[in-house]
Design a protein around this nucleic acid. Structure first.
Lengths: 181, 181
DNA sequence: TAGCTCATGTAACTAGTTACATGATTTG
DNA sequence: CAAATCATGTAACTAGTTACATGAGCTA
């Protein structure tokens, strides 16, 4: 579960209300991550109880009060911890949140996590390619059920290829920082 | 929710027990889809109550009885219906299940669904590329927070590119069937 | 003899979705 | 005048995960 951490990253970039966060999750972040306002409100409440965020109630003329959330010291510490922690079950979306939040922790630790996941995906890609070679040596001749199974395998291969290439792009960029020259 | 339908496809390929299905979901299907045995047992029970599958209890020596599930007429009809039904909220995994199951329904209907999703992803890719051009005209010079945001956008672009290419591969294969010549 | 495979299940929990509710202001 | 935006919330539900339980046979 990382909605908490996605919210921590977003609030670290800029403080905001639950409503504003909902909008953000519909756009930039939410292009690959979706969360309804109910979900966000509930998680924000939990985060407040845990002391990860502080609330500032802003009265407004004509419209309801706004609860502006800011990341607290405890929240910042939690984000740093999470960014450095290896998570073998993390998917691309979680990793994207870690990359986007790298500025608020240790980017080198994030890079290490990417290296681990790159290895896992490269291995999986290898398995897929072996299956492709073994079970579908002549794809042009396939029909029906076998063709459909082959097409799904092709999807898996393409996904893993894209993943590995992206990880490489990320690692190249993180390992050769322009500000360290 | 499409675990039901993934199970229908898998059982259409070959009858099996909940335990066997769990194994299958760990391998071929489950390379991109995961389901625990508890989840599968519960869904199988629901499917049985709905009359989509029939159970055949097989006694075994030394080990527990096996409940072998077979797709019923009602289940086959449901699969055909689902395969032909447009689902705008379907993700790549659901579409992969539809492609893999196309043999058990109307492959042309599945192709139509792929066309719709290809359009959606091509549009999204276009949006991402515009953001890339507008917000990151000189990526080589990026550092820190902006670099990290750029890398996430690159991930989104790669994912959508891979998706669109895969859909094209699928459509080419489905539109030019070798057995229709 | 310890751990894995086969085989099924219950119970409790967490995450996420859908529906409902309120109410002022701004825009077409 | 209708619809969208701003702004927050409750309640009920669905999906999925984790932990626990049982028990025989097979393998290192």
């Amino acid at each position: 579960m990382a909605l908490e951490h996605a919210i921590l990253v977003s609030l670290s970039e800029r403080a905001g209300s639950g409503y504003e966060l909902t909008r953000r999750f519909e756009k930039s972040i939410g292009l690959f991550w979706s969360a309804t306002h109910q979900q966000i409100y509930r998680v924000l409440k939990r985060m407040e109880e845990a002391g990860w965020v502080a609330v500032d109630v802003v009265a407004q003329s004509g419209r309801p009060d706004k609860k502006v959330y800011t990341v607290s010291d405890r929240g910042r510490a939690e984000l740093v911890r999470w960014l450095a922690e290896p998570d073998p079950s993390a998917g691309p979306v979680e990793l994207a949140v870690k990359i986007r939040g790298a500025t608020f922790g240790d980017p080198a630790k994030v890079a290490e996590e990417i290296v681990r996941h790159r290895a896992k995906h490269a291995e999986r890609l290898d398995v897929y390619r072996q299956i492709e070679k073994r079970d579908f040596p002549a794809p042009a001749a396939l029909t029906g059920r076998h063709l459909h199974q082959y097409l799904v395998l092709r999807g898996g291969i393409r996904v893993e290829e894209g993943q590995v290439e992206w990880f490489d792009e990320v690692l190249t960029a993180l390992h050769h920082p322009k500000d360290a020259r």
